[in-house]
Amino acid sequence: MPASLQEVKRRITSTKKTGQITTAMQMVSTSKLNQIQKHTKTYQVYASKIRNVITHLAASHLLDDVEAPETVEEGEVNSLAMLQQRSVKKTGLVVITSDRGLVGSYNSNVIKQTMNLISKNHHSKDDVEIIAIGGTGADFFKKRGYDIVYEYRELGDVPTFREVRPIVRAILKMFESEKFDELFVCYNHFVNSLTSTFRGEQMLPISAENLGSEGLSDTNDSGYNLEYDTEPSEDAILEVILPQYAESLLYGAMLDAKTSEHASSSTAMRSASDNADDIIAGLELQYNRARQSAITTEITEITGAQAALE
């Protein structure tokens, strides 16, 4: 036990203080997690409504008709463009990360998997446009010379649709103006408060496949196989719904990412607090031993001195 009593004591106090901070941060993250989960639940009502209607329209083979080559006037912004498969010259990637650290492996996971996705699709730097939401991702890709077409920092802890809307609008506009021809969204999907998995999904153009994967399973039990009257026409309705659908998908991805950010922050802080407890226990043992040996030495000295006097 070389450490002096003083030093051990100082380390115990400082570790205790750090532990207090991490415990507080854990509680903050947990409450944010609760909030956002409540919010996500209400959002899902909205999302599933839209998805059901879209699936219904898809089921009536409307999407197939639209996908057939169609003459879109130059310069005219047409929401049906979201359905058109263009030859892919550029790929847009929305990368959702957090602004701050202390979230465990959350950011490194997203970034690593995004790089995998880029290399798997054999894209080089010039084929990719990055839309960075969250500071960590923005800094990472900027440093590596990627082209960042949109950057947004300081997304709220429980983002509202009103806050997200300008971002979503900007992204959709870039797609319409053919800045990129397909859009992937890369984020951490929240599984439960301990695990999250990476998701890199194609979002645009909207195709039968990426509708079908989520939508079709719902169709049978919800009675959406009904025949609808449509007003004014199915095409016109599709034109209203598709942008709304794309907006809601992106918003959903952001909510999901934020949820898993809060979850991993909470987990990281919990393990930090646990570590602090372990360290404190070890240090306290060390402190007591040092104190004991100091006492023993003192006693030996006193008795030694007494023996010498007699």
Binding site: E227, Y228, D229, T230, E231, P232, E234, A236, I237, V240
Partner: peptide, 20 residues
Amino acid sequence: KTTQGELGILPNRLPLLASL
């Protein structure tokens, strides 16, 4: 109010989709 004009909706109507 739909994009085509005002629309009153009563119970037991046929299923309907309309843009607002």
